[in-house]
């Protein structure tokens, strides 16, 4: 980082101070000290707001979560707390609903991330051709990104309705159409994945497209001189060049799937939404946390869920790191 910076720091020569060496220390007025202080303190002042806000509303609550997880705190009396040790963790770890939520989060994460990134990769490849109205196509596939999770979920909830839903109506032409999407173990997860895929494919496509355009053209030239077909070029030049980007999108999508909340909440809406379906078939960890904290009013176990999510995230990060190293080694 910043290896090429040619001396950005100090004021080269404060007005009137350039001959300071010959004039000795007497010329060092309060003014030049002020300049020094300005140079020294300014960068920290400029980055301070970020760290202050993050400290107050990010880091401090994160640690505070750990404290709450060891206490009994009820929504009805927020100012009272009582030490309970590991009880909250024991409660959620013994709750089969928690493990259902963990599994659901992973399953939905995988079946929404994998197809999404594959489609995005293919789409980026298409958009990388010389096209008429290329900006139009890029904007068009990005429109779902402008749609809020609430709007998207509500529309898809109607589309996936069992009776009279748009999708079942379309499917009845090919002999289907009786699927009870929201109540099925797999169909409900598929429905949620479709919402996620719809909203995020365009965004990931643009990220891949940007990375593809940064691949030097001589790589392709060399490959085609060696007689590589276009498919071979895609596999041997494009994909390897995109490796860091692909890893980055996997990380971002994984973190994103840990956060799935609006989609399951609104798929069936009402009370069913806040418990993730009648059999918890699409209950995610965020829904579980929300239900414990805000519906049942027990903030202690809710905080314990948050820390469980942190542990899971660290696990995922570790796996990512290992895979990343492995990929890196293989590439080298």
């Amino acid at each position: 980082m910043a290896t090429t910076a040619p001396a950005p720091g100090a004021h080269a020569s404060p007005p009137g101070g350039s001959g300071a060496a010959s004039n000795g220390l007497s010329r060092r007025t309060w003014r030049s000290r002020l300049w020094r202080f300005d140079d020294l303190a300014s960068p920290y002042a400029y980055i301070a707001p970020f760290f202050l806000i993050f400290g107050a509303f990010g880091l401090y609550p994160l640690l505070y979560t750990g404290w709450i997880a060891l206490h009994r705190v009820e929504m009805t009396s927020l100012d009272q707390s009582q030490w309970v040790g590991w009880e909250n963790f024991a409660t959620i770890l013994q709750d089969s609903e928690f493990w259902t939520a963990v599994t659901n989060t992973f399953v939905i994460g995988v079946i929404s991330t994998v197809p999404q990134l594959l489609v995005a990769l293919g789409l980026a490849h298409l958009l990388n051709y010389k096209l008429r109205a290329s900006t139009f196509w890029r904007t068009l596939i990005l429109t779902p990104y402008a749609t809020s999770v609430a709007t998207a979920s509500l529309v898809f909830a109607l589309v996936f309705r069992a009776d009279g839903g748009l999708l079942n109506w379309v499917l009845h032409f090919v002999g289907g159409g009786n699927t009870d999407w929201g109540n099925g173990e797999w169909t409900s997860k598929i429905a949620i994945s479709v919402m996620v895929i719809w909203r995020w494919t365009g965004y990931n496509t643009l990220i891949y497209l940007a990375a593809m355009q940064a691949v030097p053209t001589d790589l392709y030239e060399a490959a085609s001189l060696d007689g590589a077909t276009r498919w071979q070029q895609f596999r041997k030049v494009t994909i390897p060049s995109l490796r860091p980007t692909i890893l980055f999108t996997i990380v971002i999508s994984t973190i994103g799937s840990m956060q799935l909340f609006g989609e399951p909440l609104l798929l069936q809406g009402g009370t069913l939404g806040s418990i993730g379906g009648s059999e918890h078939q699409y209950e995610t960890l965020s829904i579980y946390l929300f239900n414990y904290g805000w519906k049942l009013g027990h903030l202690g176990p809710a905080a314990a869920v948050a820390w469980a999510m942190l542990v899971l995230l660290l696990l995922i990060a570790l796996i990512n790191w290992i895979v990343g190293r492995f990929v890196h080694k293989n590439a080298a």
Partner: peptide, 28 residues
Amino acid sequence: KLGAGQQLKGGPFTYVALIVVGLGSVLP
């Protein structure tokens, strides 16, 4: 001589695929 990259023009298939995806993006 150009590679699989950016200089090649998109064929009809490219446009058909983009139209399908584009419709999918705005239909909801």
